[in-house]
Design a protein around this nucleic acid. Structure first.
Lengths: 248, 248
DNA sequence: ACCGTTTTTCGTACGCCGTACCAAAGATAG
DNA sequence: CTATCTTTGGTACGGCGTACGAAAAACGGT
């Protein structure tokens, strides 16, 4: 008994459907995703989504308890894109984990706003499938469950952190005006003059920060830099945990 | 010439002060921080801050162009807490970098909302000091500037990602009701029954997810887990880059 | 074909938000 | 004391999420 009230989670609460409703949760999530991708996450409002669908605003609340639940639908739709198709799953743990991480990175970089909502929400079916694939990547290793879990958390932390910094830095770069770049440079030079910033001055002093920055990235793409960091991470973990590295 | 309009950035635009204003930017930032820490970041509104200070709402706009600038003030105040006091700076790069990362982690875990705003904003003086200390941690190594930069980025990614996941997961745990926990468990069991989740089922099946989770964390605190991940990361980086590890 | 019931739609209204605009108040220099 | 400039903050506008409840539409039974 007490199997009754699964109303608490959107994933257990049944979707409308006994008398052909006009929409589906999937349609609503898709409309919201389209808005987020073209106009930014901030433009996703209940009114805006409803307008996109040609529905009244409050109609959405028949499919979803509140906006958080709607965002959870969006998140899970995105997690669906992360999944590795059956048959493409690498054998070696190193390659499998790399593949999972890279796919996650690719998708999150396309939808960086998902980072902020992904943490609060209960994972949906696609989130669960992603977790399953993460675990699957480590079967065949000698790791205990706690060690597996720690390794997955480490990789997830890095993926999320890298996306957080890389994606939002790139959008910031687009937002910045020439005036702001120049003001930044003058500000930095003023700080150097205090003598409090010897190392930063040695790095940037007198040059265009944007160019120095570009030089520091050594011409690598954001994706390459992520991959490289991931390699460092996995190497370190393999050494610590006694995992075999693939032959190169 | 052309040194004139540094109005673009709050860090270069002069603060009010030629005729004794009632407030200062620091006071305003402090009031906002107090609200954020006690009532959550969402409660920080221009009206709320003004009320806290006994000021009219629009008065704040004389000190700050818009809310983003005000949040930048909050962020920089927080970065001030991250700085390592002179004299406490470790000699060995490994210890120095660990200290920088740990302090950042401690502060961000106390103010996790800062993660979301930190990325967009132009770093203020304290942000610059933090960067200077990060660079200082790596002087004395044989690394080139690009390598230093890559290593710092790697550590920053991990710190931010770990805080993002750890902090928001802990707040989510507080938000969740018993009903939601139970619904989650029933939902998971229903998914296991499809046979699509063998690894997840082997891990959680039939048991209370909360307890399994606690077991996987092996009794370590969030801070210990972060430290351990950081060690793995730095070990891997040291091996790759030919950096000396400290004697243990 | 009609009716009663239940599902589904959605208009209105409330209290928030950030902030543009502009008038009033206050401080200072001459 | 006055003219000027700094500083304060009231009012109003267009957004937001969503509580409430009325209207419409779909269906099963007759």
């Amino acid at each position: 008994m007490a199997s009754g009230d699964d109303q608490a989670l959107i994933w257990t609460r049944p979707a409308p459907g006994s008398r052909r409703p006009k929409f589906t949760r999937d349609q609503i999530a898709a409309a919201a995703l389209a808005i987020a991708d073209t106009e930014g996450f901030a433009a996703v409002s209940m009114r805006r989504i409803a307008a996109e669908l040609g529905a009244g605003t409050m109609t959405l609340y028949y499919y979803v308890r509140n906006k958080d639940e709607l965002v959870a639908l969006m998140d899970d739709a995105i997690m669906g894109q992360v999944l590795i198709p059956a048959g493409e799953f690498p054998d070696h743990w190193y390659h499998a984990l790399t593949e999972v991480a890279l796919r996650t990175w690719d998708v999150l970089m396309r939808h960086p706003w998902a980072l902020h909502s992904l943490q609060n929400a209960q994972p949906g079916p696609n989130g669960m499938r992603h977790f399953e694939q993460s675990l699957a990547a480590l079967t065949g290793t000698t790791l205990g469950t706690a060690e597996k879990f720690a390794l997955l958390a480490l990789v997830d932390d890095y993926v999320h952190g890298n996306v957080l910094r890389a994606a939002e830095m790139s959008t910031a770069n687009e937002t910045f005006t020439d005036e702001m770049f120049q003001a930044t440079r003058r500000y930095a030079e003023a700080l150097y003059a205090t003598g409090e910033f010897p190392h930063t001055e040695a790095l940037f002093g007198g040059q265009d920060p944007v160019e120095v920055f570009a030089g520091l990235l050594a011409g690598r793409s954001a994706r390459d830099r992520f991959r490289h960091g991931l390699d460092v991470l996995l190497d370190g973990a393999a050494t610590r945990m006694g995992l075999p590295l693939p032959g190169r």
